[in-house]
Computed example of a mutant assay.
Amino acid sequence: MAAAPVKHRLGPGGPLTQLPPCYYEGYLEKRGPKEKASKRLWTCLCGNTLYFFNNAKDTHYVEKLELGGFVSLKDDCSRDRNLEAARLILRMKDGETKLTAPNLESRELWKGFLYSVIDLNVPSCLTLLPGQLQMLKEVVEKERSRRRTRTPTRAPPSPLSVPLVGEIPACFRPVSRTEAEVLLERHPDCGNMLLRPGRDGCSLAVTTRQDLNGSVFRHYRVTQRDQGGYVIDVENPIPCATLHEVIDALVEKTAGTLQPFLLEEPYEENITYVTANDENGEHMLHTAPTSPLPKAPALPPKQDRWCSSPCLDLLLQIDVFSHHLCHPLPPTQ
């Protein structure tokens, strides 16, 4: 379970720089990209940023790591002097940070909280208890609410202000330039080119990623023409009738090196629901039964109303016998 949240964590400037709400905290050993040795620091996940303090009682952090440039989070299976310790590799756009949790259970919880504030979804790939999953669900809701209510210094242009014409390609994503780079780097097997809104809100852009001793990103502006269609704004502009032709033109110009980014979102395989225990109030996650639906009872086969049956045959024989009794045949001559 998480430690009690810190209510008043401050930045170097004092009360005017109070930090976002703390979702999870505890001691971690941290070694940044340029650090030669690990440091044991009290670590707080406040909002979508990790803040590091010298100890649990300090109110002013000494380092912070914003998670906006997140790329991946992986277990580090290398051995440690402390056999109970469990390592993590947190890869960001500007390098890797190695974190060491006290034990495996603590590492799973850290991963759960980190994924929850980064993806704004409860991760389904971790081994956690129902109560811990409920905690993560509450963190996701709080972080979503925090991001909706905070006032940005400059409102970014809405993707909806882009007047798209015609069918939209599947590789279109309503993301910023930075978010597009993170998506392409996190999912290299899903393609390396996506279409997104431009910064000015009146144009579009194509972001691409390729490997050349590391990730190489390129951004191309796509504008609409007054007479209809689109133009890829390069040195020799490339006119295209539709957005699909924009993507096809870039694939063709690069001999297939660039491929549309198609990320398949995972779907649940089972139906789950949460119930509360009336005695202790604890919430439990249940999986609905997967038995097939009962089949409707089969109707009896249709029969021709003129078809014979044993009872009908018997009635006919009785009727013929009665007819002969009442109307005997005349004697033969």
Rank of each mutant, 00 (worst) to 15 (best):
R9I: 02
L16A: 14
L19V: 08
L28E: 12
P33Y: 03
E35W: 04
R40I: 02
N48C: 04
L73A: 00
C77P: 15
C77H: 02
N82E: 13
N82T: 06
L83P: 15
R87T: 06
K93M: 08
D94V: 01
D94L: 00
L99P: 00
L99F: 02
T100G: 02
P102K: 10
S106V: 07
K111M: 11
Y115Q: 09
L120I: 10
V122H: 13
L129W: 02
L129M: 08
V139D: 13
K142T: 12
E143R: 08
R144P: 10
S145D: 13
R154C: 13
A155C: 13
V162S: 06
F172I: 03
A180K: 01
L183C: 01
L183I: 04
H187N: 13
M193C: 04
M193E: 07
L195A: 08
P197E: 04
D200M: 03
A205F: 01
V206H: 05
R209Q: 14
Q210M: 00
L212D: 11
Y220V: 07
V222Y: 02
V222I: 15
T223I: 08
Q224D: 05
R225N: 14
Y230I: 04
N236G: 14
N236K: 11
I238N: 08
I238G: 12
A241T: 13
V246F: 08
V246H: 08
L250V: 06
A255R: 09
A255Q: 14
Q259E: 02
P260T: 09
L263N: 10
E265H: 07
Y267K: 13
Y267T: 08
T272A: 05
Y273W: 14
Y273N: 03
N280D: 15
L285F: 06
L285K: 10
P289D: 03
K295V: 06
K295G: 07
L299P: 08
D304E: 08
C307Q: 15
S309Q: 04
C311V: 04
D313E: 12
L316M: 09
F321W: 12
H323I: 02
H323D: 09
L325E: 10
L329C: 13
P330R: 00
P331C: 05
